[in-house]
Each structure stands twice: as structure tokens, then as C-alpha cells.
């Protein structure tokens, strides 16, 4: 046990002694803050009548806006529904960096128990992902609620459902960082890993989720996509709002979503252990 704690402390030191964590954290905060503040202003403005829908350029009137009452969770969930790419990148960079900078050599010299090192990395990144979740929520809830409140719409911050959404967001972000570690050992090339993260999260999965909504069967399968599972875990997402009108929208229960995401992290990490981690370090 002390060995594992030691390994975790070393992994935390690794994470905090290079610049990538705070650069990602700063961009995460700025990005989510802008998005949450901006869209909260748009939707809350429309709901409160402060903004004329036609002026907002939606063209479809109030049809495209969420029903009253569900706006705050939607805005708050930007933390994970949009921000999840950041913990994935953090986890992937922390892992692929060891290959890229050949720091696996000193790492395995100091602790030759490789499975333990990888386990410590997953635990460390899980906690770091939770911290990223807190940072993202500070942006989405902090700035979002301020804007929503400014338009006189209820922020729902007194609602326990809102707070459980916030808690589940932290868990989702933590799991995403673990998924990143798994991806990093599965695809140790840093460039390839980053390309996969960006292409999959920003393009492939949104497209698959959108396309899958047109039939019942594919929609069921699509709920097991990692992003969909994450949204199910959190309980609200821009994607569930943006589906085609009348399309099939099915989601998993929140705990099922969490387990699916956990399964992705576990499968990638264990697979990566065999693919790269226990290989020769040359």
C-alpha cells in the first residue's frame, strides 16, 4: 500500500512539474466560461423576452430553445458535454509524454513494478480529472448562473437536482481523464493520440450520435458511445437538445452511463498495458 501511495505521489509530482496541466486548465476555464456565459445570455435572453428570437437568428422562433426550467442544467452541463476533451487530453499527454520524452526509463528504474505505475497514473489522472471537473464547473455554473440570474431566470441553484448534476459532472470528468490514460497507452504516439482525441470527440462521435438518432436500433447502440454515456451520467447535454425533431432519443440511466465510461477507461488501460506499457523500453 505504501508502495502504491509512493507511486501516486510521484505521478502527481510528474503532472504538476510541467506546464501542460495549467495551460489546459486555463483554456478549459476560458472556453467553458465563454460558451456558458454566451449561450446562457442567448437562451435566457430569449426566455425572458429581453432578446427577440428572430433577432437571435434562430429563425425557428422559440422552437429551438429549451423549454423553460431546463436551461440552467443545459448550461451547467457544458462543463462536461463540451469540456470533456480537456481531461482526455491531460490523461493522454501525461501518458504519451512518458514515451515521447523517454521518461519511462527513469520511471521504471525507480519502480520496476510497471502495472503498479500504470495503476498509480490512472488514479492520479482520475483525481486530476475531478479537479478539471471542478474548474469547468466553476466556469459553467459560476459564469452561467451569473448570466442566467442577470436575465431574471431561475438559476435552480437551490435545487438538489442541480447539485447532483454538478457532482456527477465531477465524476464524468474524472473518468474522462482515466480514458485519456487508457488511450495514451493504447496509442503511445503523442501526435496520433491527440489527433484521435480531437477527431473523435469533435467530429466523429457527434456525427455518429446525430446520425444514429434517425432509427430506433442505431439510437440504442449510440447510447453506448463514450460521449453519450458521459452525457447520460451527467444527465443533461446540448446533444440531447440538438437532435432532429421527432428523432429517437434514448439515453442510459446515469449510473449505467458511468459504468459504460468506466468500462471504456478500464478496457483501454488494460489493453494498452499489453500493447505498449509492458513492452521493451529501448
Amino acid at each position: 500500500m505504501t508502495m502504491l501511495l509512493r507511486a501516486i505521489r510521484a505521478e502527481f509530482a510528474k503532472l504538476l512539474t510541467t506546464r501542460i496541466w495549467w495551460i489546459l486548465a486555463a483554456v478549459l476555464f476560458g472556453y467553458i466560461g465563454m460558451l456558458s456565459g454566451g449561450l446562457a445570455a442567448l437562451f435566457a435572453g430569449i426566455q425572458s423576452g429581453a432578446i427577440d428570437p428572430s433577432a437571435a437568428g434562430t429563425g425557428t422562433g422559440t422552437q429551438g430553445t429549451p423549454p423553460l426550467g431546463s436551461l440552467p442544467p443545459l448550461v451547467y452541463s457544458f462543463a462536461s458535454s463540451v469540456g470533456y476533451v480537456f481531461p482526455v487530453l491531460l490523461g493522454a499527454l501525461a501518458t504519451t509524454g512518458e514515451f515521447r520524452h523517454q521518461t519511462l526509463t527513469p520511471t521504471f528504474l525507480a519502480n520496476p513494478r510497471r502495472a503498479q505505475v500504470l495503476g498509480a497514473k490512472v488514479i492520479t489522472l482520475f483525481l486530476a480529472g475531478a479537479a478539471f471537473g471542478a474548474i469547468a464547473l466553476l466556469a459553467s455554473v459560476g459564469i452561467g448562473a451569473l448570466v442566467i440570474n442577470a436575465f431574471g431566470v431561475d438559476t435552480l441553484l437551490g435545487d438538489s437536482a442541480t447539485w447532483s448534476l454538478i457532482g456527477r459532472t465531477v465524476i464524468a470528468m474524472a473518468l474522462w481523464a482515466a480514458v485519456g490514460v487508457g488511450l495514451g497507452v493504447l496509442v503511445p504516439s503523442q501526435v496520433a493520440s491527440i489527433v484521435i482525441v480531437l477527431a473523435f470527440t469533435q467530429f466523429v462521435e457527434p456525427l455518429l450520435r446525430f446520425a444514429s438518432m434517425f432509427t430506433e436500433a442505431t439510437a440504442g447502440i449510440a447510447t453506448f458511445l463514450p460521449g453519450a454515456a458521459s452525457d447520460a451520467l451527467v444527465g443533461a447535454s446540448i446533444f440531447t437538445m440538438a437532435g432532429p425533431v421527432g428523432g429517437a432519443t434514448s439515453t442510459l440511466d446515469w449510473w449505467q452511463g458511468g459504468l459504460v465510461l468506466l468500462a471504456y477507461a478500464a478496457a483501454a488501460t488494460v489493453g494498452g498495458y499489453f500493447v505498449s506499457w509492458r513492452r521493451d523500453v529501448t
Binding site: 505504501t2 508502495m3 509512493r6 507511486a7 505521489r9 510521484a10 509530482a13 510528474k14 512539474t17 510541467t18 506546464r19 501542460i20 509524454g97 520524452h101 523517454q102 521518461t103 519511462l104 526509463t105 527513469p106 520511471t107 528504474l109 525507480a110 519502480n111
Partner: peptide
């Protein structure tokens, strides 16, 4: 104590931090 040819250090990490990480990992 082993020093291998491809001296492998993260370029963005200070020497002191690199050593501190090794020391922590090895107890």
C-alpha cells in the same frame, strides 16, 4: 544506480524536480 545513454528527461521539467520525482517514486 543506472544512467543510460539516451539521457531521458522531460525538457520542460527542472533538474531538481526530475530528481525529486525519482526520489519520491523510490521512497
Amino acid at each position: 544506480g543506472a544512467a543510460l545513454e539516451a539521457a531521458s528527461f522531460h525538457p520542460g521539467r527542472t533538474a531538481r524536480n526530475h530528481l525529486a520525482i525519482c526520489a519520491t517514486a523510490a521512497g
